[in-house]
Amino acid sequence: MTQETGNIITLKNVNKWYGEFHVLKDINLDVKMGEKIVICGPSGSGKSTMIRCINHLEEHQEGDIIVDGVILNNDLKNIGQIRKEVGMVFQHFNLFPHLTVLQNCTLAPIWVKKMPQKEAEKIAMKFLERVKIPDQANKFPGQLSGGQQQRVAIARSLCMNPRVMLFDEPTSALDPEMIKEVLDVMVELAGEGMTMLCVTHEMGFAKKVADRVIFMDAGQIIEENDPESFFNNPQSERTKLFLSQVLGH
């Protein structure tokens, strides 16, 4: 396993193309157990693509991605293994509208982990309580607000008991007054020691919980640093320009 390095995720010289378009260029990244990483960068820089490679929603063409000791390739067994370990929260929630909130949360535990229904429901209720919406368990996602839906999506991922959580702009589709309720849940999750990779432009969140901030542009990691140095003392001109745009107004 990965004991000797202590890394739960390793990306080694990862390259990816969309057809002719070189979207990820020599990405190297090590994520330690329990580390919280915030990824930012301009639109189209490849942030989503990078974290989606980690659970193989996208396929990379060169380099190695190792999650919890399992090498990610086209072997379906490995992909299944990794997806059990890695939870993902999307910008648009991607809840299943034909299932209730509770059924959304128990679907994967029952079918993927073969958990008995009763037990799955108990666990689901536990996580729905943690995201503070146990009273909505029997509603359909379409009956909830955006912030509530995103919290259900987080609970749904947590029900699989993942070791890593990936977030792809979890708050950018939300109205301003709902952003906080989702961020609060994420801060709490971070406090419990979950390993998190989070693409977000919420710089307040980055300052508060991130161990490391990564700045990407044009498919490369330009700069990575602890939030303190990253925000106060950016090294490259690109980062300075980006920060002035994000924080400037």
Partner: peptide, 13 residues
């Protein structure tokens, strides 16, 4: 596409 990805990310076959 999000429905397919949501299911994939949860590890459903």
């Amino acid at each position: 596409k999000g429905q397919f990805e949501g299911a994939d990310a949860l590890g459903l076959s």
